[in-house]
Design a protein around this nucleic acid. Structure first.
Lengths: 189, 189
DNA sequence: GCTATAAGTCAACGCCTGTTGACAAGCGTC
DNA sequence: GACGCTTGTCAACAGGCGTTGACTTATAGC
């Protein structure tokens, strides 16, 4: 969690970046109200007050996190025919703390927080649905993208509730296969 | 929000029930940490202290809410061949505050709260996945159920973020159709 | 090396939270 | 009608929260 280097120099940009990284990690793992500025500052190795100083406040920090999330371009590469397979494997077998999942994680963790919804909606459109739909192309791309994204988010939630989905290895393999097929069906024209 | 009757009589069971109903509504709409006992007590029209007295504390109240959620049997009736259509219509067109969605809503709203996960997992198994799988039957029912449920939860999240999914009426109809097809694919053997 | 300024710390604030124990009021029972 | 148990209110608590302003310290430029 210690995002800040051990040997520190006074560097506002680096501190800002450390705070942003710490905040991204926290907001990707807990809901808005669960995340305290003190925990973020602690992760970054600085005082709480710097958060308000550098970002303005908690809401602005959250917005900054959303804006700092890069579109997960790796998802939107290669043959769309492999999409289901690729994403299913990622969602079920790979660690969830990868940067390319940040945007989706942050979106879903704080989706219940009313005052964050508009920022989430905008960032989601710009940094996920948009690039996704452009890559996919074809008719009703937005609609297909939404369906696939909903499924992805649901799976991420379940994975948080029980790491292995409460399944045996065999069951998980079956689940992965089904997920791959259904994801593929979601995006197909 | 005023769950309590206006003309009140001293009735511990009724008060308990009012608190439970208010809590269910709150936990179905906000994340665990966002829900305050004072807001629940206020909805029920009684003092905060009664929450701790009747349920023990916040965690126990949350557990009681989960245990009080009835399995949404109406979902698990009729022809499984209509499942996708029925559920898609429900998720996209009907209000989300229906009792039969409580269990799923509560599960997903607080899924990020680490200490609630075990209770959520257990309640989900007993009150949703279990009945769902028994109704569905066939091979790998659990796996098929999980896939469909994940998609349902994802759609519920997106609906919270933007009421109309940021879609026109036409797009929403297309989305509903696609969702119906993909949900059906999720549960099919 | 000294100084001005940026960077970071510290302490305090007002507010809200969950929880607790003392108190008041309703209600059934004798 | 008075008693006693139940039901509900009230006030206070300790602790955490976000935010603020005054303070200290490091560092870059001269």
């Amino acid at each position: 969690m210690a995002v800040r280097e051990l040997v520190r120099r006074r560097d506002a940009n680096a501190t800002r970046a450390a705070l942003l990284a710490a905040a991204t990690s926290r907001f990707a793992n807990e809901a808005y109200d669960s995340v305290s500025l003190r925990s973020i500052a602690s992760d970054a190795g600085v005082d709480v007050s710097l958060v308000s100083r550098y970002f303005g406040g908690k809401e602005e920090l959250f917005a900054a996190v959303l804006n700092a999330c890069a579109p997960p371009d790796e998802m939107f590469e290669g043959d769309p025919g492999d999409f289901g397979e690729r994403i299913a494997r990622m969602l079920i077998d790979e660690p969830l703390d990868d940067d390319k999942l940040s945007i989706l994680l942050v979106m879903l963790r704080s989706s219940s927080h009313a005052s964050a919804c508009e920022a989430i909606r905008a960032a989601g459109e710009e940094r996920f649905y948009g690039p996704f739909a452009r890559w996919l192309g074809g008719e009703n791309a937005a609609c297909r993208v939404r369906t696939a994204a909903a499924l992805m988010k649901g799976v991420m939630i379940d994975r948080r509730i029980s790491e292995d989905f409460g399944m045996s290895t065999n069951e998980r393999a079956l689940f992965r296969d089904r997920l791959a097929r259904v994801l593929q069906a979601a995006i197909e024209a």
